[in-house]
Amino acid sequence: MTTRRNRDPKELAPVTDWGFHENVLRSPNVRTVYSWGPPGFGKTWAAYHVGLRGPLFALTLTEDTPAAELRGHYLPVGTGMEWRDGPAILALRLGARLVINELTHGSPDVLSLLHPLLENPDTARLTLPTGETVQPARGFQLIATDNLPPEELPPALRDRFDCILEVREPHPAALAMLDERLRGAAMRSFTLEPDRRISLRGWLSVQRLSREFGLKVACQAVFGPARGAQIHDGLILGEAQN
């Protein structure tokens, strides 16, 4: 959840309270979370690591991902067919955390399957083609991540999330991986409009490559010749004394 109210435009105070985010992800009372924000800010990292109590299942949706890939399907074994649970059913059975990346890319097929998984514990259940009905075991969590706001989700799906977390800044631990030289510039680049925004991933790549090639070549390698040159000019001029 963000706190952007009454901000002095002159200051660059954090707009994402990561402490709050982590508390939400760690809470045993939070079962379903929709975490969204620009790419490269650590949504997936937090979903995989923060407050993880048991097994973790993760998958990334595409338009072609069938619901059967989440739920499970029959497989021919020998002369017969055998049912194989998908990650969603396994997570339900084991009380595990299920992380679904790029939720809005999912087909209606997949999004409909998620409805029963996102229900309250009293009503969440899914009857498989085998006839078995699976209910979520204690500890089951579903965390969905995406770049798009919740308004992009179908209303029925959106309504089923316990919490909606907006991430507008990278995780402080991830930011701390940047050296002093790049950190200040990186902080300024997160608030830019989408076509000029630079993700933390990009800055980390520059840092890694600049040790071998120098800053100028690293910028060009990571961002391309034209954009890299502009970013390099900005960095050098930004460092210069006033």
């Binding site: 300024r188 830019l192 076509d195 034209a226 502009q230 970013i231 000019d233 930004g238």
Partner: peptide, 14 residues
């Protein structure tokens, strides 16, 4: 878009 400069990285105060 690739040739857009980054004045935000340059200005004295963020």
């Amino acid at each position: 878009g690739h040739h857009k400069p980054f004045p935000e990285l340059v200005e004295p105060m963020p």
